Computed example of a mutant assay.
Amino acid sequence: MIINPKEFYFNNLRYIVRSATEKDAKNLSEVRLQIDGETENLDREKGEAYIDESGFKQIIKDDTESISNLFLVAEVKERIVGFSRCKGNKLKRTSHKVEFGVCVLKEYWGYGIGKNLLKESIHWADSNGIKKITLNVLETNEKAIMLYKKYGFEVEGILKKDKVLSDGNYYNTILMGRFNE
């Protein structure tokens, strides 16, 4: 699905949150690879589950055509610096919910980009009959957990010793959900 672009200004940074288009595919492939190498908060290490330009073109096409998917990008001076996705499905028993994921280049942390991608996704979901948004977050990502709670997400469960990070230790994944009555 497609939303109207929205402009934000924070700490002298101007950025736009808008729906992804197929011409974003190459940039998205590069940005995702870079972000995966900058943080352990995501599921992948750099280069794992790589999605090339044609892969992103297909995802964007599918998400644009689906009423239960939303693919957003955050753009600074025509450069993508972060993105988010809400992915639903067509199964009747779970068609009321979507799974949310977000990532932002490290140099753009602290500008509210992740927050605004989340807010726009919530607004889209609430406006389009989506009743539940779910997400997974690493237990050590305290800022993200606080943000999600601020926007109505609750802890629904914990996957114990779910991820092994570079320090060799195992960490829990927190399952969170937000239900819109």
Score class of each variant (00 low, 15 high):
Asp63His: 12
Glu30Ile: 12
Gly47Asp: 02
Leu42Asn: 02
Phe153Gln: 01
Gly152Ser: 09
Lys90His: 04
Thr94Arg: 05
Leu117Met: 12
Tyr15Asp: 03
Ile113Met: 08
Lys150Gln: 14
Ser66Asn: 15
Phe8Trp: 14
Glu65Ile: 05
His96Ile: 09
Pro5Phe: 02
Lys92Asn: 13
Gln58Thr: 02
Asp162Glu: 15
Asn141Pro: 09
Lys77Asp: 15
Lys23Ser: 12
Tyr108Phe: 15
Glu99Met: 10
Phe100Asn: 01
Lys163Tyr: 09
Val102Met: 11
Lys97Ala: 08
Arg14Lys: 15
His123Met: 10
Ile51Leu: 06
Lys26Pro: 00
Trp124Asp: 01
Lys87Asp: 14
Glu99His: 10
Asp63Gln: 11
Arg18Leu: 01
Asn116Lys: 07
Glu75Asn: 10
Gly177Thr: 10
Leu138Gln: 04
Val73Gly: 01
Thr39Asp: 01
Val81Asn: 09
Glu78Thr: 05
Ile174Lys: 08
Ala144Asp: 10
Asp24Ala: 08
Val102Arg: 06
Leu72Thr: 02
Ile122Tyr: 06
Leu33Pro: 00
Ile122Leu: 10
Tyr170Gly: 04
Arg32Thr: 02
Trp109Phe: 14
Lys90Val: 08
Ile59Met: 01
Asp62Ala: 10
Gly129Asp: 12
Gly157Tyr: 07
Leu138Val: 15
Asn11Arg: 14
Tyr50Asn: 03
Gly55Ala: 03
Lys26Trp: 00
Asn180Phe: 04
Ile3Asn: 02
Lys92Gln: 12
Lys61Asp: 03
Asp167Ala: 08
Ala125Pro: 15
Thr134Val: 14
Phe153Pro: 06
Asn169Met: 15
Asn4Asp: 11
Cys86Glu: 11
Val76Gln: 11
Tyr108Trp: 12
Gly177Gln: 08
Ile60Trp: 00
Tyr9Gln: 06
Gly101Lys: 02
Ile145Trp: 08
Tyr170Asp: 06
Val155Ser: 13
Tyr111Trp: 11
Ile122Pro: 03
Lys61Ala: 05
Gly55Met: 01
Ser127Tyr: 15
Phe56Pro: 00
Asn69Leu: 09
Ala144Tyr: 00
Tyr108His: 14
Leu13Ile: 13
Glu40Leu: 12
Leu105Ser: 11
Val104Phe: 08
Phe8Thr: 02
Phe100Ala: 01
Arg18Met: 01
Lys119Phe: 00
Asn172Lys: 10
Lys131Glu: 14
Asn27Cys: 07
Asp162His: 13
Leu175Val: 07
Phe71Gly: 00
Ser66Gly: 12
Thr64Ile: 13
Gly110Ser: 07
Ser66Tyr: 08
Ile174Glu: 01
Phe83Ser: 11
Met146Glu: 13
Glu139Phe: 11
Gly37Phe: 07
Thr21Pro: 00
Phe83Trp: 04
Gly152His: 04
Leu72Gln: 03
Ile133Ser: 13
Tyr15Pro: 01
Gly37Ile: 02
Thr173Glu: 14
Leu165Ala: 00
Thr173Ile: 15
Glu78Met: 06
Gly55Ile: 00
Glu78Cys: 06
Thr64Arg: 13
Gln58Lys: 14
Ile130Val: 06
Glu107Asn: 14
Ile145Asp: 02
Val76Cys: 08
Asn89Met: 11
Ser84Val: 07
Ile80Thr: 05
Ile174Gly: 03
Asp126Lys: 15
Ala125His: 06
Ser121Lys: 07
Ser121Phe: 09
Lys87His: 04
Glu107Pro: 05
